[in-house]
Structures are given as C-alpha cells and as structure tokens.
Amino acid sequence: MPENLRIALLTYSTKPRGSVIHTLELAEALQALEHHVCVYALDKDGSGFHRALSCDYELVPAYPVSGGVDNLIRQRIQEFVDYLSDSHLQARAYDYFHAQDCISANALLALRDRQKIPHFIRTVHHIETYNSPYLRQCQDRSILNPDLCLCVSQYWQSALKQQYGIAAPRVINGVNLDRFSVHPMEQDQIVKQQFQITGDPVYLTVGGIEPRKNSIALLHAFAQVLAQYPHAQLMIAGGATLFDYQDYRDQFFAEVETMGISVGKSLLLPGVIPDAQLPALYRLADAFVFPSVKEGWGLVVMEAIASGLPVITADQPPFTEFLSPDQALLIDPASPNAIAQSMLNVIQPAVRTSLVKHSRSLCDTYTWAASAKMHIKEYKTLYARNSLSS
C-alpha cells in the first residue's frame, strides 16, 4: 500500500447538507495528512461548493429532470457514471473510490461492474424509508454491494447488521473549531442586521422544514414559548434537499397561519445560509433546538456546542450515543409540550451555563483529524484483504 494515498470522495450535491459537509471536512483532513484527495460532486446549478476547499475537486454537471423522484435519481446516477467513465478518471489512478451516499455508490457500482474501477467504499449516514420500489432497490444495492461499508454511529451500525447482515466499521464525525467558536467576529453584527435577528430569546435550528426534522412539532412548541416570551424568535436555517416535501411544508405554513405566528418577525426562514455566515448565526442564538426524529449523527449539534450554545435534542440514538443528560436537554421529540418546556428551561442562566460547561469536552473527542485517521485504518484493512484474495 502506498504511503501517500490517492482518494476520490463522491457526494451527491454541492449544497451544505450533513453528508456533504462530512465529505468536505473529511477530504480536507485527509489532505492535511498528506494524502491526495479529489471530491467529485453533482452540481445542478453551476454555482459550485459553498466554500473554498484545500483539496482538489471536480464538479459533475447535473441537469434538469422531468418526471418524479425515480427519474431524478436515475439521471443523477447516470450523470455520475458518464462523467466518471471519462478516461481522465483512470489516468488519475486513485487507490480508493469512496461514496458518501446512495447515488454516488450506485454510480461506482456500475463502474466496478464494467471493470472501470477495482473496488469502492460507501459510508452509510442513515437508512431511508422509501415508498418507491426503485428507490428501495437503489438503497439496497448501495449498501449490499460495496467492497467496504462504513457508518457514522452505533445506531446505524446495528441497523446495518440487523437489516442487511453487514458488519460496518464505525467512523466518527467531527467539528471544525477553526470555523465554529464562541469568539465574536466582525461579521456577526452584519449577519444580525441582515436576517433581522432581534429576538429575546433567539432559538436556532438548522436543516430546513421537513418531516424528519420534526418541524411542525417544533413550531407548536415555539407557539407555547411565544405565550410567555412574545419577543422570542425561532430561526429555521437551511433546506436544500433532493426530495420534495411540499405537502409537509404546506401543512407547516397552514399551522403558522392558524397560530398567528408572524413570519419575518417571530419566525425567521432565511433558507440556505452562505457558509461564511453560518458560524455567526450560531453565535447570535441563545439556544439550539433540534428535535429531529432521524439523523445519521447530528453534525449541527456539534457545531452548536462548539459555538457555545446549549442544546435541546431528541432523547434517542444517535444523539444519546455522544450526549449525556448533563450535556444537552434530551426530550421526547413527539411531544411539543416537552420541547416547549425545554425551550423555556434552556434559557435559564444556571441551566445554560451547566450545559455549555459539560458539553465543551466533546469538541476534543470529535475531530476531523481523528476521523481521517480512522478512515485510513479502514482503507488499509481493505487493501490487506484485497491483497490476500488476489
């Protein structure tokens, strides 16, 4: 096995979703260990990544799609395959091809079947529940067929074993302390004015409006908070996704209207946040509220902790794998009342101070440098296994 590896990391988007952030941070951490990394990402609007990278990258053109989500996924897989079938890929002689999602894993599977690449790896961030038979088949292929399957939590490690019979080594996520910190920056006040953050208190969540983020339950909880703190604000940042949650969004906004919550005043919906502004957003909030019902791990929770915020999140895996009750307020995500009570409790000075104090040590454990070293160990294991079988 060569000392300095050449690694191709593939991700389905250039937008700042969890697995995309994982890909970019891992790529830069591997590059810092003196390996050569290139990120391949589907780019549907030609805008590229939301931030500059210290490693190489290739933007794979992704074109408009007619039809439903099945057609979308078929086309996205084929776009990856067509781009990677170009002779330039083999000319780079990568040692490892590593997919971070179902789409790129299916593309690498097609390339391996055509003997364009010798093997590939996939990280499973979480397992989706699809209604579409085609999407279920895509997911199954992307999990069952890689030469090595990794995962990011004990919860999904157990799920992979139970549902697929796969023993997937676990690799960790991290947090970038150069980006997320408690230290105020000049741009904080600019961001505050731009997004009209004037609330007292200000609650932040990141991930957009969608079912697994439990947005409607959070909205009902916030309505209860407003009854006691009429100047409170809830900011829901983010929202770029492959899937259409329009029915859920319609229900969310119908509830907003019914409850008389003012969008733009009490409820702030800035959409996808430019990468340079996201750290400021955390620092401008009083608490981070994340009652999600399904996550691969919860990168945004660690970003909030690194930014000095007390956290409220679901009392279930994967959050309970790395958060104890003295590090976060762990609540029943199905109960708006429980969420609301925690939102009221978390802004009490003694509660806030204790949570921030006890959670801070997590930033020393979950680092991208440690994650990169775990990945190299797994790459070496795959290399040794392939050497024995050849």
Rank of each mutant, 00 (worst) to 15 (best):
N145Y: 02
S142D: 04
H126G: 13
P169Y: 06
E58Q: 15
R141A: 11
G68R: 03
P118F: 01
V124Y: 09
W156Q: 05
L148S: 09
Q163A: 07
I73Y: 11
A105F: 00
R112W: 02
C151F: 08
C102Y: 03
V182D: 04
D70Q: 08
R170G: 00
P184R: 12
R141S: 12
M185K: 13
E58W: 00
L72Q: 14
S85V: 04
V152L: 10
N131H: 15
N145V: 03
E128V: 08
R170V: 12
D147A: 10
Q78R: 15
Y164A: 10
N145D: 12
A93M: 08
I172C: 11
I77R: 01
L150M: 09
I127V: 14
Q157M: 06
Y134D: 07
E58K: 14
R51E: 13
F97Y: 03
G68I: 08
R112E: 13
V171T: 15
Y164S: 10
D140P: 05
D113A: 09
Y63S: 11
V191S: 03
Q162G: 00
Q157H: 13
L177M: 11
L177Y: 02
A168K: 01
L53G: 04
Q189E: 14
V182R: 14
Y130T: 05
L84D: 03
Y130E: 14
D113C: 04
I166M: 11
Q162P: 00
L160H: 08
H126M: 13
R112G: 08
S181R: 02
P133H: 12
H88N: 09
E58A: 12
P133A: 13
N106Y: 00
Q75E: 08
Q194E: 15
S181E: 07
D147R: 01
F120I: 08
P118Y: 00
S54K: 15
A110L: 10
Y63C: 06
C102N: 11
Q90D: 07
E79R: 02
D147F: 00
I73W: 01
S87A: 13
L109G: 07
N176R: 03
D147S: 14
K161S: 15
E186C: 09
R179A: 12
L148I: 06
H88L: 07
D101V: 01
H98P: 08
A99C: 05
L72V: 06
S104A: 13
Y94C: 09
F49H: 13
K116F: 01
Y83P: 04
E58G: 03
I117L: 05
E58N: 08
R51L: 07
